[in-house]
């Protein structure tokens, strides 16, 4: 197995699948201004996915390109965390998913900028700028909804209850990471788990939200085992490439 290829898929698929999810909302946001904001985040993520999957295809060197990777793999070959494939739900679900993810990504990209792999470092640097903004937007919304009305509080508390279980997977590591950490390419995720937890709890605190007591950590997306939701997302996303294979668009 090519560890760098695998590593790039993990990062790239997170961007791709979340970008795809957010793109479903274009035209349906709660207010026009927010529609535009959500779409911007989606565009950033699809841009990141394009950079990462292009690089992955290069590293793999089997004649595939970013589009082949994005549109022609089967579900088991996608390496995103289960969190990002969760449905948009209501606006509270969307923002809570975004917040738990952005908080991780910001800390992750800050460190990935130091990677000895220069291309990866450059992608991380660009993505970090985008992610800082995403995190600002999503954490402010979590606070607004949590500390808003009674209805918004109970809705977004429910979002937290359902999504909380997926956050731990963000810190999943295996031999892929270990090999690349030794080479100075990958980030050791353990080094910022505490920082993540404390940042998240600061925001939740300000939002007057309480994380659920259950701390069962699961999620196996990094190994290609996904929730039921990914298959539907892929069916839609891959429709054209599957129906009309080998054509230019």
């Amino acid at each position: 197995m090519n560890s760098l290829f695998e590593y790039l898929l993990r990062i790239g698929d997170d961007s791709l699948i979340l970008g795809q999810r957010l793109s479903e909302l274009c035209g349906h946001g709660p207010i026009l201004e927010e529609d535009i904001a959500t779409t911007n985040i989606s565009l950033d993520l699809i841009g990141q996915a394009t950079n990462l999957l292009t690089y992955a295809a290069e590293v793999e060197n089997l004649g595939r390109d970013a589009d082949n990777l994005a549109f022609m793999r089967i579900d088991r070959e996608y390496k995103n965390v289960v969190l990002v494939e969760q449905p948009n739900g209501d606006f509270g679900d969307t923002m809570m998913r975004q917040f738990l993810f952005d908080a991780f990504r910001k800390l992750f990209f800050e460190r990935l900028q130091q990677s000895k792999d220069f291309q990866l470092a450059a992608i991380a640097e660009k993505s970090l700028k985008e992610t800082r903004y995403h995190l600002k937007h999503s954490s402010e919304w979590v606070i607004r909804l949590g500390d808003g009305t009674e209805e918004s509080h109970s809705r977004v508390q429910h979002s937290l209850n359902t999504l909380w279980r997926y956050r731990a997977e963000l810190f999943f590591m295996d031999e892929v990471d270990n090999e690349l950490i030794n080479k100075g390419i990958a980030v050791d995720l353990k080094t910022f788990r505490n920082e993540y937890d404390s940042f998240v709890s600061t925001i939740l605190n300000e939002a007057t939200l309480n994380p659920p007591a259950q701390n069962w950590e699961f999620g196996s997306g990094r190994k290609g085992k996904h929730s039921e939701h990914l298959g539907h997302l892929l069916a839609e996303m891959q429709y054209m490439q599957r129906t009309y294979p080998n054509m230019e668009w």
């Binding site: 201004e33 535009i36 600002k136």
Partner: peptide, 9 residues
């Protein structure tokens, strides 16, 4: 949010 929205709009 006005500033963020202005940025996006």
């Amino acid at each position: 949010l006005a500033i963020e929205n202005a940025r996006d709009v």
